[in-house]
Design a binder for these strands. Structure first.
Length: 274
DNA sequence: AGTGGCTCCTGAGCGC
DNA sequence: TGCGCTCAGGAGCCAC
C-alpha cells in the first residue's frame, strides 16, 4: 500500500531518471485508469513534452511538464510507477507505457484502483481528494497546535482520524498502526480523550515514523516497489503491522488484532492502553 | 459528527 | 490437476 513514504520514494526515484526527458509516445492499454480524460487527449497532451519536475502531496504524485501541463497520479493499493531502460515485457497489469527519448515509464496496477488525471492549459486541479488534503506531516503547518485543534471535540477513534486525509495527508493503514504503537496510544482511543502529552507525542511520532520510513525507502509488504523497481526496507522495521499473534517487540505480550474504521488493525493491548 | 455498507478489482489462502 | 468462497484495502459515495 503506497503511503507517504512509498509515494515520496517513487517521486524521487522516477524524477532522478526521467527529469528533462522528452516524451515520444504514450500507450494506454486500459482507459479505466484515466479519471478525467480520454486516451486520445491524454496521449496528445503528453507527446512531445518534457518532464519538468514531479511533486508529491499526501499520497498524490504530480508530474509537471515543460508547458506546465500537470499529470496527477494516485497509486491507491497496487499502483507501480517504474522506469525501465528497455521496453518492459508485456504484462496484462501494465496499463500505461510512456516512451521517452531514452527509457520507458510504466504504470502497472493489479487491482486498477489507481487513477491518472490531466490538467492542461492552466486548468485548476478539480480533484476533490487533492483539494481537501490536510497538513503535510513534514510541513511547518503541521504543529502540535494543529493536531490539538483537529482532535478536540472529536469522538471517533484516533486511528480513524490519522487515516483522514483531510486532516493529515499521507498516512495509511501501515503507518497509522506503527505511529500508534510508537506512541503507546490505543487505536480505539477517542480523539478527545488524548491529553497534552499524548498529543505532543503523537505529533513527534507521526514525523519520526514517517521520516524513518522515507529514509528506508518505504515498506514493501506486498506490491510496492520504487521508481527503479526496487523494494523498500521499512518492512524490516515494522513493529506491529500485520504481526498479530506475535510477541510485542516492547513488552513480549501477544499483539492483538481488531477492526478499526473497517481496517485491519494490530496493537499491543499491554503497551497501548485503551 | 460518526458509522457502516457498497463499489471499484484481483490474487491469495482456505476448505473440501 | 480445482472450485467456490472470503478477505485485503484507499477513497468516494450514500443512507441512517
Amino acid at each position: 500500500m503506497p503511503e507517504l513514504p512509498e509515494v515520496e520514494t517513487v517521486r524521487r526515484t522516477v524524477l532522478d531518471r526521467c527529469q528533462h526527458k522528452k516524451i515520444i509516445d504514450v500507450a494506454v492499454d486500459n482507459d479505466s485508469v484515466l479519471a478525467n480524460v480520454d486516451v486520445a487527449t491524454f496521449r496528445a497532451a503528453l507527446q512531445g513534452r518534457a518532464i519538468k519536475t514531479i511533486e508529491r502531496r499526501g499520497k498524490y504524485l504530480l508530474m509537471i511538464l515543460d508547458n506546465d501541463t500537470m499529470v496527477m497520479l494516485h497509486l491507491r493499493m497496487t499502483g507501480q510507477l517504474v522506469y525501465f531502460e528497455e521496453m518492459p515485457e508485456a504484462d496484462k497489469h501494465r496499463h500505461v507505457t510512456i516512451t521517452m527519448e531514452q527509457g520507458f515509464l510504466s504504470y502497472r496496477d493489479v487491482r486498477r484502483f489507481g487513477r491518472f488525471s490531466l490538467y492542461q492549459d492552466g486548468a485548476p486541479i478539480t480533484d476533490n481528494g487533492w483539494l481537501q488534503l490536510g497538513a503535510e506531516p513534514f510541513d511547518d503547518a503541521f504543529t502540535v497546535d494543529y493536531l490539538t485543534e483537529g482532535l478536540a471535540k472529536r469522538r471517533c477513534p484516533i486511528k480513524n482520524r490519522l487515516l483522514d486525509q483531510t486532516f493529515i495527508a499521507g498516512i495509511g493503514n501501515i503507518y497509522a498502526d506503527e505511529i500508534l504503537f510508537a506512541t503507546a496510544i490505543h487505536p480505539l482511543r477517542r480523539c478527545d480523550s488524548l491529553d497534552e502529552d499524548e498529543v505532543a507525542s503523537l505529533h513527534r511520532g507521526c514525523i519520526d515514523v514517517l521520516a524513518l520510513a522515507v529514509e528506508k525507502r518505504g515498506t514493501s509488504f506486498s506490491d510496492y516497489v520504487d521508481g527503479s523497481g526496487n523494494a523498500g526496507e521499512f518492512q524490516q522495521f515494522l513493529q506491529v503491522f500485520q504481526r498479530g499473534g506475535e510477541p510485542c517487540p516492547r513488552c513480549g505480550n501477544r499483539l492483538e488484532k481488531c477492526k478499526c474504521g473497517g481496517r485491519g488493525t494490530t496493537f499491543c493491548p499491554h503497551c497501548q492502553k485503551e
